[in-house]
Amino acid sequence: MLAIVAAVLFFISFLINAADITTNDVFSSGNVMLLGLLALALHVAGIGSGWSARRR
């Protein structure tokens, strides 16, 4: 799930950069890209992979 969030954030970052949209400092292209990298890192670490059933 976090990989999809990362892809959406990367796409938003690309649109902000490609369309040369002026935003405030919080939603700049670089900050949105860093949020996407954070979501991707959490996905690779296994945080957002879903529930795992523990069996005995």
Results as ranks from 00 to 15, higher is better:
residue 30 G to E: 08
residue 24 N to P: 14
residue 51 W to K: 09
residue 1 M to N: 11
residue 25 D to N: 15
residue 40 L to Q: 09
residue 41 A to S: 11
residue 48 G to D: 01
residue 11 F to C: 14
residue 49 S to T: 02
residue 13 S to T: 07
residue 38 L to T: 09
residue 21 I to N: 07
residue 55 R to F: 07
residue 46 G to R: 01
residue 55 R to Y: 06
residue 11 F to E: 15
residue 10 F to N: 13
residue 30 G to S: 10
residue 33 M to H: 06
residue 17 N to R: 05
residue 53 A to L: 14
residue 10 F to L: 10
residue 36 G to S: 01
residue 36 G to E: 00
residue 33 M to T: 05
residue 55 R to E: 12
residue 51 W to C: 03
residue 31 N to W: 05
residue 27 F to C: 12
residue 16 I to P: 00
residue 21 I to C: 08
residue 55 R to P: 05
residue 40 L to W: 11
residue 14 F to N: 14
residue 41 A to R: 04
residue 17 N to H: 09
residue 5 V to P: 05
residue 14 F to R: 13
residue 27 F to T: 12
residue 39 A to W: 01
residue 55 R to I: 11
residue 22 T to E: 08
residue 35 L to A: 03
residue 46 G to H: 03
residue 16 I to N: 01
residue 25 D to H: 14
residue 54 R to M: 07
residue 19 A to H: 15
residue 40 L to E: 07
residue 4 I to R: 10
residue 47 I to M: 06
residue 6 A to S: 11
residue 49 S to H: 02
residue 25 D to I: 14
residue 1 M to Y: 07
residue 16 I to G: 00
residue 49 S to P: 02
residue 12 I to H: 07
residue 2 L to A: 10
residue 38 L to E: 04
residue 44 V to L: 04
residue 22 T to C: 15
residue 24 N to F: 06
residue 28 S to R: 09
residue 46 G to M: 01
residue 40 L to T: 07
residue 34 L to E: 12
